[in-house]
C-alpha cells in the first residue's frame, strides 16, 4: 500500500493516484486518466491526498470505469480507436452491469461514458413492458391504480393539436 507521507514512492509516482472502491480494493491510476472524471479532478485540486476513497462504487464497476479512463487518457490512441473502444465497452454487457456503471459514471461525472451507457440501456429497454422496466430498475410503482389507468388512457406523449383544425 502506498501512502502519501512516504516521500520516495510519491515522487516516483507523482503522476499517479490511488482509488479505493467501497469493498476495499485499490487501483493505481495515472493522474491524466483520473482527471477525465470531473469529480476526481476536483478532489485532486482541493487536497494533496493521493488516495481517494469512493464509498459507493464497488470494485467490479470501478475497474471498468478505470479501464475506460486509462484508454481515453492514452494520447497514443486515435479518436477513431477510442470510439470503437466505447462501442466495444458497452456491447454485450448485462443490463445489471450497465445500471451500476451509469450510476458510478454519474457520481464521478464522466459525462461521455455516462451518456454512452445510458443510450445502451435505452436500446435494451426497447419493446419491453413497463413491468420489466420497474423490475430491472427496482422501482416501486407509486401510482394509484386510478392514476395509472388515467396515464394509460391519456398518453402524455400525444399532442393536442385539435385546436388548430376545428373551429
Amino acid at each position: 500500500m502506498v501512502t502519501t507521507d512516504e516521500k520516495g514512492p510519491l515522487t516516483a509516482k507523482k503522476k499517479s493516484v490511488i482509488i479505493r472502491s467501497c469493498d476495499g480494493d485499490e487501483f493505481l491510476v495515472s493522474e491524466s486518466a483520473a482527471v477525465l472524471s470531473t469529480s476526481l479532478k476536483k478532489i485532486l485540486e482541493e487536497k494533496e491526498d493521493r488516495l481517494i476513497h469512493l464509498s459507493d462504487i464497488d470494485n467490479k464497476t470501478l475497474a471498468m470505469v478505470i479501464a475506460y479512463l486509462s484508454t481515453h487518457a492514452d494520447d497514443g490512441l486515435s479518436d477513431d480507436l477510442k470510439r470503437s473502444f466505447d462501442q466495444e465497452f458497452v456491447s454485450g454487457k448485462e443490463f445489471d452491469v450497465l445500471k451500476y456503471l451509469v450510476l458510478a459514471t454519474d457520481t464521478l461525472q464522466v459525462t461521455c461514458l455516462c451518456y454512452t451507457v445510458a443510450k445502451k440501456m435505452a436500446d435494451i429497454m426497447k419493446n419491453k413492458l413497463v413491468e420489466w422496466v420497474r423490475r430491472e430498475f427496482d422501482i416501486q410503482n407509486d401510482y394509484t391504480p386510478e392514476a395509472e389507468a388515467e396515464i394509460r388512457r391519456l398518453d402524455a406523449w400525444a399532442w393536442d393539436d385539435r385546436q388548430l383544425e376545428d373551429d
Binding site: 429497454m125 426497447k126 419493446n127 419491453k128 413492458l129 413497463v130 422496466v133 420497474r134 430498475f137 422501482i139 416501486q140 410503482n141 407509486d142 401510482y143 392514476a147 395509472e148 396515464i151 394509460r152 398518453d155 402524455a156 406523449w157
Partner: peptide, 10 residues
C-alpha cells in the same frame, strides 16, 4: 416505448 417510460413511476 416512451409511453412505457411515462408509466414507470411518477
Amino acid at each position: 416505448d416512451r409511453h412505457t417510460f411515462s408509466l414507470v413511476c411518477r
